[in-house]
Design a protein around this nucleic acid. Structure first.
Length: 829
DNA sequence: GCAAGGTC
């Protein structure tokens, strides 16, 4: 029995299909698919099924000095036990093992991991290795016809990376976390890839913070032909700077005014130069992961979302493997055959048919040609619109159209530059026209905006009008967007096609960046500063560059795994020697930055800082840093995680707050304004729960959701609350309840005012009735206790009340209840 | 509970 091992299930199934001619049987062992035919079995791993870690005696962060990790053993343990177990069972019975993991360095290491599992249970079985760049019949069959050996040196190169990454990452992460006392979920992490990426973001932020805007002026005017009926076109003033380059920005106001005066006083300009040229706009190259993410981001997808959709489309068989560096289609991809698959399709067919009309189809090629996977392209399998979500379809169409574009013709633009003179001043207009749309016809994601400038002749007089002088300011550099960051990581050689987008997510998870485009927190800046000072290697892309060189040396037999890891350990020892004395200083700085990230501005009561805090129950609120001397608090909405925005409230000097809750994310604004204008209405009296002890008071409140209640001003510390109806004006009368010393309330909605009375008495009466009429309501099918409570808050307390009620009014008044539901209940009642 | 790299 021959056993074939692949890197993933998907590859196992496709190889089984090719080698068996579609006759394989599949079964499941321990939740792992096994494909079987004519004396062969094929099983897929799930990437690495073993991982490196320290022995368990190193696992308590407080008991182990971080520096001890440098020389600790590094063990390999199974991380996917069911797969390892299955592999062991299959390997025992095997008479031949073939490793068919991906054709790249990490694939070689995964292959070696499988090799060791096999060897452990079967000391003698021959183990061979096959390599292929894409899972197509030709490639796979010829790979299996000429099997090779595992490349242990290449695998060792990968192991060196694992060890170095673990030792550096774990020891420095623990050091920073311990120094700042951040030991829970909020540890402070450092790593060979995440930290240089974070430094990119932090460096850009430093430029932005240091930026000093400078004013400048630009001048525009409209030009128009005197004859014919063409439209006017816009021209811009320019001059020659000291390097004889064309410059449009005027740096002195007086000069700008002078030009403006002159241009405004004239009504004509003379054409002094006409320059026409055609430009070829070559079609884009095939998608690798990075370029795919970039294109998806241009149509509104985050890196994470784009990859997640691509993975789904891949698993469903509509597109090829989405993690690839390759930008050259393999030889066995026949573009004509693939185009044929789209002929006749309702939305994609027309483009495919037009492309098939070409005499010759030659796809574009990028610079990178790798051995692991082809560029991302459609497989020819087309989902129907019902099979996939709108987002999936949009991404599928992007991949299809990108493939179309790579086999389409170039586009041709005509550029027309006109220079006209007014007195000693010059104006220029740049026109462009798309003469041959070429690939743009099948790939509508790039801008094809034209700019109209008419045909003019040298010496021609044009009329001049609408002179405008615009004052502007130089702008700071822009933050990196997610896709730009991923491209930069690729340029620097940091991370891999499979991990770059995950690294970005990690920076969000660790509290290092917020918002989109990612903005670094103060914590991130402090971590980068500390690393720059004591462990510069770990924030520099140079560490990866050196590691790559070392890995190449191991792969080529010029160095050993021990040579490389020993040297790396020595460097880390030196770093820790320098760090030892600065632990407290680093910790102080990190702690201060953590606090800065929670700061909103001054407390209106005592002037200390207001901070975003979390209550014991996990809900967020705003509290004063002066606590317990100052007990000032402000509430925050209960949905989402608060993000402190850059914008400040002019009235209170507090940063505004955004509540992050996925699709339900919203801007809450200044929490003090919110509390003042919407949140807290009139104070009714002392809070019966905490009034005596803490001085809490009851107030009428309107929540973010629009629902209202009588609640304690010390919320969220005190959660005492009483329900109020959603609609109607609330009148606070000057009649007081003897029992509770609270004013009686009247609700004005519709014709008859509803005398709710003392809110405490009202609630108590409601609770008393609940056991009787409440159960009466609850007896109706489809009404639960929660609903009974909601209905009571709008005065529906019995079955009679319910049958009398207007379903539409109830639906309006009560959140989460539709008029139809009310009608259903009425029918049952 | 640390990293980065596979994969889902």
């Amino acid at each position: 029995m021959e056993l074939i091992i692949t890197e993933k299930d998907n590859a196992a199934r496709r190889i089984a299909d090719i080698l068996s001619g579609g006759t394989y049987d599949s079964s499941r062992e321990n939740g792992v698919n096994v494909y079987e035919w004519g004396g062969k079995r094929c099983v897929g791993l799930s990437g690495h099924v073993v991982g490196v870690d320290f022995p368990s005696e190193y696992s308590d962060w407080r008991d182990v000095e971080p520096a001890e990790l440098i020389d600790a053993d590094v063990e390999k343990t199974a991380t996917k036990e069911n797969i390892v177990a299955t592999l062991r069972i299959l390997a025992r019975k095997a008479t031949q093992v073939t490793i068919a993991t991906d054709y790249d360095r990490e694939g070689e290491l995964i292959g070696k991991e499988a090799y060791e599992i096999v060897r452990d249970v079967n000391a003698d079985v021959p183990i061979q290795r096959v390599r292929f760049s894409s899972i197509t019949e030709n490639e796979v069959k010829s790979a299996f016809d000429e099997p090779d050996e595992l490349d242990f040196d290449l695998a060792a190169a990968g192991e060196a990376r694992q060890i170095i990454d673990l030792i550096w990452g774990a020891s420095l992460t623990r050091f920073l976390s311990l120094s700042a006392g951040q030991l829970g979920d909020d540890f402070i992490s450092v790593g060979r890839v995440q930290s240089p990426t974070l430094k990119l973001i932090v460096d850009r932020e430093r430029e932005i913070e240091a930026f000093d805007p400078e004013p400048y002026w630009e001048l525009f005017a409209d030009l128009e032909k005197r004859e014919g009926d063409t439209d006017a076109f816009e021209a811009q003033y320019f001059y020659r700077d000291e390097d004889d380059n064309e410059a449009e920005r005027v740096w002195e106001e007086a000069v700008a005014d002078e030009v403006y005066e002159t241009l405004s006083s004239r009504d004509s300009a003379t054409v002094v130069d006409v320059n026409r040229r055609t430009r070829t706009d070559t079609p884009p190259t095939p998608f690798n992961t990075t370029q795919f993410i970039r294109a998806a981001s241009a149509i509104g997808y985050t890196a994470k979302r784009a990859m997640s959709i691509a993975e789904d489309l891949y698993t469903a068989g509509y597109i090829t493997y989405p993690r690839t560096d390759n930008t050259v289609y393999p030889d066995d991809l026949d573009p004509e055959d693939l185009l044929d698959d789209f002929v006749g399709h309702s939305t994609l067919g027309e483009s495919a048919e037009s492309l098939l009309e070409a005499d010759e189809i030659v796809p574009t090629e990028g610079d990178e040609e790798t051995t692991d996977h082809p560029p991302i392209h459609p497989t020819g399998e087309i989902p129907t619109r019902g099979d996939v979500s709108d987002d999936e379809w949009e991404i599928f169409e992007l991949v299809v159209r990108r493939f179309f574009a790579t086999v389409a013709d170039a586009a041709v633009w005509e550029h027309l530059k006109v220079v006209a003179e007014v007195a000693d001043y010059r104006l220029k207009a740049n026109g462009k026209r798309l003469v041959e749309p070429g690939y743009h016809d099948v790939y509508p994601y790039f801008s094809t905006t034209e700019n109209f400038v008419p045909d003019v002749d040298e010496g021609e007089e044009l009329s001049l009008s609408d002179v405008e002088l615009e004052e502007k300011e130089t702008q700071p550099p822009r933050r990196y967007g997610q896709s730009r960051l991923i491209e930069t990581m690729e340029d620097l050689g940091v991370g891999t096609k499979s991990t770059r987008h995950d690294i970005l997510e990690k920076l969000y998870d660790r509290g290092y960046v917020e918002s989109d485009p990612p903005r670094p927190t103060r914590l991130a800046m402090a971590v980068v500063e500390a690393a720059e000072e004591y462990a510069d290697r770990v924030v520099s892309e140079g560490m990866t560059a050196q590691l790559e060189a070392d890995m190449d040396a191991i792969a080529h037999g010029e160095a050993t795994l021990d040579d490389v890891t020993d040297e790396s350990r020595e460097m880390l020892e030196e770093i820790f020697a320098n760090l030892a004395d600065s632990r407290e200083e680093i910790g102080d700085h990190l702690r201060k930055s953590l606090k800065d990230d929670k700061r909103l501005g001054p407390c209106p009561e005592c002037g200390e800082d207001l901070l975003v805090r979390r209550s014991r129950h996990g809900s967020y609120f705003i509290g004063c840093d002066g606590y317990p001397d100052c007990e000032y608090t402000l509430p925050l909405p209960s949905t989402g995680k608060p993000l402190i925005m850059e914008s400040e409230c002019e009235e209170h000097g507090l940063n505004e707050i955004k509540m992050l809750a996925g699709r339900q994310t919203f801007v809450h604004g200044c929490p003090l304004c919110k509390a003042e204008d919407a949140g807290e209405g009139p104070i009714l009296g002392d809070c019966p729960e905490c009034g005596d002890e803490h001085g809490g008071e009851l107030a009428i409140k309107t929540l973010q959701s629009g629902s209202r209640l009588v609640g304690c001003t010390r919320y969220p510390d005190c959660e005492y609350s009483l329900p109020l109806p959603r609609r109607g004006d609330i009148e606070v009368t000057d009649e007081y309840c003897d029992d509770h010393d609270l004013p009686e309330l009247v609700i004005h909605s519709g014709d008859e005012p509803w005398e709710l009375g003392c809110p405490v008495c009202n609630y108590q009466e409601f609770q008393a009735r609940e056991s009787e009429s409440g159960s009466e309501l609850e007896a109706l099918e489809g009404i639960g206790a929660k609903t009974v409570e909601k209905l009571a808050a709008v005065g529906i307390e019995s079955v009679d009340d319910l049958t009398d009620a207007d379903p539409d009014a109830v639906a309006d008044d009560v959140e989460g209840i539709s008029a139809d539901r009310v009608r259903t209940w009425q029918a049952k009642a």
